[in-house]
Nucleic acid binder design. Sequence first.
DNA 1: TTCCGTGCAAAATGTTTGCAAGTCG
DNA 2: CGACTTGCAAACATTTTGCACGGAA
Lengths: 148, 148
Amino acid sequence: MPTLYQDASKLLRAQGGRMTNQRRLILQILDSVSGHPTAEELCDLVNECDPSLNLSTVYRTLRWLESEGLVSTRRFLEDNRQERFDPALPSEHHHFMCSECKQVIEFDHPYVDEIRNQFEENSGSQVQNASLTFYGLCEECAEKKKET
Amino acid sequence: MPTLYQDASKLLRAQGGRMTNQRRLILQILDSVSGHPTAEELCDLVNECDPSLNLSTVYRTLRWLESEGLVSTRRFLEDNRQERFDPALPSEHHHFMCSECKQVIEFDHPYVDEIRNQFEENSGSQVQNASLTFYGLCEECAEKKKET
DNA sequence: TTCCGTGCAAAATGTTTGCAAGTCG
DNA sequence: CGACTTGCAAACATTTTGCACGGAA
C-alpha cells in the first residue's frame, strides 16, 4: 500500500508542483499519525520538527490533499468546532466516539453496504460515500460510571 | 405527538422560564419547517414575521432546545461550515445528501440497529446515538449527468 | 531564473457573550 | 416590582486569503 507521501509525490510531479520541506514533513507526519487530528494538532506535531512551519501551510496542504481525494474530513458531534482530517479514504471505516473520554474506535461492518444497496434501489440515487458514526460510552468509561 | 412548541412551553413553565414572543415564533417555525435549517436560514424565516428578531436570539433558543434534548444538530460534509438543526431527535432517521442539488432525503433501516448491537457486543461499549449519512447523486441529478 | 510555495498579517465566516434596556408573570 | 430575555455590538474561534519574499526545479 503506497503511503500518502508516495501518492502525493507522484501527483506533484504530474502536475508540476514542488515537493518542499514543509510538504514532506506534513506528509510524513500524516503517514505516521493514527487517529483524526485537527489542523492545529497536526501543526503542533509538525512544529516539533520545524517550529517555523505555519498553520496556513498546514491548511493549504490538507486542502490540496482533500481535493485530490487523499485525505477526508469529518467532524464529530461533541467536538464539532474543528474539522478533523483522516489520512484514509472515506467509507473505508466507520467510527465510534466516546462522549466521555473522546477516544475514537474505528470499525467496519458489511451491513453498511447492504443498507446502501437497498437505499439505492428504493430511491434511485447513487451513493458514493457512506459515513456511520456511533456515540456513547466506551467500555472503560461505562465501567467507571457504574462504580459511582 | 406533542409539538416542539408544546414540549418547550411545558419545560419553560417547569423551570421558571418565560414564553416570549420571540421564542413562540421560533418554535412555531421549527414545528412547521421540514428539513434541517441553519441558524441563519431559520432567522430569515423568522424575520419574515418579526424583522427585528435577532440572530443571537435564534442561537440562544436553539442551544437551549439542544441542551434539553428537543433538537439535535448535525453537519453535512459538503456544507460543513454551518451547523444544521434538526427538530427531531437524533437516531430517529438517517440522511442522504445529494452532492449536486444538496437536497436531503431521510430514511431509516433496521440494519442500523443490528450493526449497533453487534458493535456493542464486540467492543463492550454502550452506543447512545447513531448517525448514518450517505452522499451521492439523487435520481434526478444522476439522470442529468447521464444526458450530458 | 522562473514560478510555485511560504510566512505573516489581515480578512472572512460562524458562533458566543457582556451589557443596558425591555418585558413577562 | 424583579428576574429573565432581548438586541446590539464586540469578542471569539476556526479557516481562508493577499502579498512580498524565498526556494525548488
